[in-house]
Design a protein around this nucleic acid. Structure first.
Length: 552
RNA sequence: GCGCCUGUAGCUCAGCAGGAUAGAGCAACGGACUUCUAAUCCGUAGGUCGCAAGUUCGAAUCUUGCCAGGCGCGCCA
């Protein structure tokens, strides 16, 4: 990466200055390199002189001038260095350096942008984790897409990724679900029924009941046990969830049933471990976890006086189990409604001897749904939510995925259903995909004219001298660093904004300059630029799970 | 009351490990299709970066206090 080379050069200059006694070593590591907002300020800029001046009580512009002299000795990389403003040193990189990025891209092809920084680190990404009580809501959809994009980014940067869906089909929610199904079943048979007070009112329950009638007739009408109803609902709903995720091209490597933790004694074992460390105690008939030892304001119950565990006990056992299964890094994608559970789990992980910094929790804010500007309240139980399936019926997977990824997780996301259809016509996802399609079209056009790309080594890349070409080359060069940052910081939205920006650059260029022209040398250079762009669009889109169509 | 998140153009959002003149898309207005796909482009207009102090050469970015919205704060999950 070119930025890395610049940073190394600056480090060398800094050390030289120390050796020559121009300044002390106090500023080591304190200065930085950045890409200035304005092109007039160069390709890179450093605040090194100001940092040194501040620490050594020197004049910033004089320090900057010394640095400028040293940089002049590196003409292979730096074409020009300028002292500007209060003491910035602006670096102008040689055009050849930017042009050479095409060689890298064309060597690496669909691997350009990928890296090995992950170093094979095993990471478990847990997301969705919705219990099978109903179809996936739009909120789940956001999480599914966010988690999937993060998993893809981590995989692309050399991590060994496992995607896991954690669920519980044995709790109270599920019992109510079974009872709701039974009520609908009896209703369909025209028999007296009692709908549970807080039952699930969605239409899908009736459909499940209808299936039961078709399969079993009235043979279950006197069944006192809710299990057959619960199991049927579980099976149908889970299949529906998996099918919905399939529409979004999201696949899990494993589904982890909370029940496994109990069967294998892992929950009891956590309690025993905590007790052994003096971090669990009995009071009022319940078992408490001494979370105050971990900086929290009160202790928490892990086993109720009824003997049942609270949710946080299996959560802790589950996270320990992830570590025991050999994962180095645990990434949890949670909705903001679970924010309160995070400290409990982290305290549990610490208590059991694991490093909580190896757990990253991405909290995404809610999706607020509006219809014609009016807020739609969402509840699975009352069936007043909008499902991912309904959304997909209206706007298609790329639009939904792009829309959800075009915001950072921290932002609340407003989705107006009435606008959804219209949005789909104007969605910026098409803007980016269109750039890809146009580039593919240029390729086809070149082939039709019998113009083939010559080996890159023979191409006069120096002909790429337009400012717009230079800017695009810089963006292409920045792509791998961007992917790396987006992956390590778990922020897929950066990829989206990068692609939108690059598409804007390309569309503008396209309207102004011809790739295929009467000038064979220039055509060759531009064909390779087009190829570099095409690969970055295509790689970038696929990196976050979007399609890269060659025709639109 | 306490904790976390958010507040940037009319709308939806980037930018925030401090940096030079705060950006994009949509909406509005005016232009560009004998030329590689007009799902595009060019131009105009649009801002007390919630408010107020503080830190410093320099703050949308860091600190504190307010204001507004969201989510939590259970022997529910």
């Amino acid at each position: 990466m070119i930025k890395t080379r610049v940073k190394e050069l600056l480090d060398t200059c800094f050390a030289q200055g120390v050796a020559k006694g121009l300044w002390s070593g106090a500023g080591a590591g304190a200065y930085g390199v950045e890409v200035p907002k304005h092109e007039a300020h160069g390709d890179f800029s450093t605040n090194m002189a100001m940092v040194i001046a501040g620490l050594d009580k020197l004049k910033p512009r004089e320090v900057a001038a010394r640095l400028q002299e040293m940089l002049a000795a590196e003409p292979a990389l730096v074409m020009k260095a300028e002292v500007a403003g209060p003491g910035f040193v602006n670096l102008f990189i040689r055009d050849e350096v930017w042009q050479a990025v095409l060689t890298t891209i064309c060597d690496q092809q669909e691997r350009y942008g990928l890296s090995s920084v992950g170093n094979g680190r095993r990471v478990l990404v847990e997301f969705v984790s919705a219990n099978p009580t109903g179809p996936l809501s739009v909120g789940h959809g956001r999480q599914a897409i966010l988690g999937d994009a993060i998993a893809r980014l981590l995989a692309a940067t050399g991590h060994e990724v496992t995607r896991e869906y954690y669920y519980n089909d044995a709790g109270r929610q599920m019992r109510v679900l079974g009872e709701s199904t039974r009520a609908r079943y009896l209703e369909l048979l025209g028999l007296p029924f009692q709908f549970p007070e807080d039952g699930y009112q969605g239409e899908y329950i009736r459909e499940i009941a209808a299936e039961l009638v078709a399969e079993a007739g009235d043979s279950l009408k006197a069944c006192a046990d809710v299990t057959p109803f619960k199991e049927k609902a579980d099976k149908v709903i889970f299949a529906n969830i998996v099918a919905t995720l399939e529409r979004l091209a999201i696949h899990f490597d494993s589904y982890y049933n909370e029940h496994t933790l109990y069967e294998n004694g892992l929950v009891d074992d956590v309690v025993a471990s905590l007790r052994a460390k003096g971090l669990a105690y009995d009071q009022d008939g319940a078992v408490w976890f001494k979370t105050t030892d971990f900086g929290m304001d009160q202790d928490r119950v892990i086993i109720k006086s009824t003997g049942e565990p609270t949710y946080r006990l299996p959560d802790i056992a589950y996270h320990r189990e992830k570590f025991r299964r050999g994962f180095d890094w645990l990434v949890d994608i949670f909705g903001s409604d679970h924010i309160g559970t995070v400290p409990d789990v982290l305290a549990g992980v610490s208590a059991l001897g694991y490093d909580p910094s190896r757990v990253s929790v991405v909290i995404h804010q809610f999706v607020t749904l509006t219809r014609d500007g009016k807020l739609v309240k969402m509840s699975t139980r009352k069936a007043t939510f909008v499902t991912v399936d309904e959304l997909l019926d209206e706007v298609g997977p790329d639009v939904v995925r792009f829309f959800f990824l075009t915001r950072k997780a921290d932002s609340q996301l407003e989705f107006d259903l009435a606008l959804a259809a219209r949005e789909s016509q104007e969605n910026p996802v098409f803007y980016v995909q269109y750039a890809n399609a146009r580039l593919a079209s240029i390729d086809r056009q070149a082939a039709a004219k019998g113009v083939a790309r010559q080996p890159l080594a023979q191409v006069a890349l120096a002909r790429l001298s337009q400012p717009a070409e230079r800017t695009m080359l810089k963006s292409l060069a920045a792509f791998p660093g961007l992917v790396e940052g987006a992956a390590l910081d778990l922020e897929p939205h950066r990829i989206i904004f990068f692609l939108i920006d690059l598409a804007g650059q390309f569309h503008s260029y396209y309207n102004q300059h011809k790739v295929l022209s009467d000038d064979p040398e220039l055509t060759q250079a531009r064909l390779w630029l087009a190829e570099g762009l095409r690969l970055v669009f295509s790689n970038g889109l696929q990196l976050v799970g979007l399609s890269a169509p060659e025709n639109m």
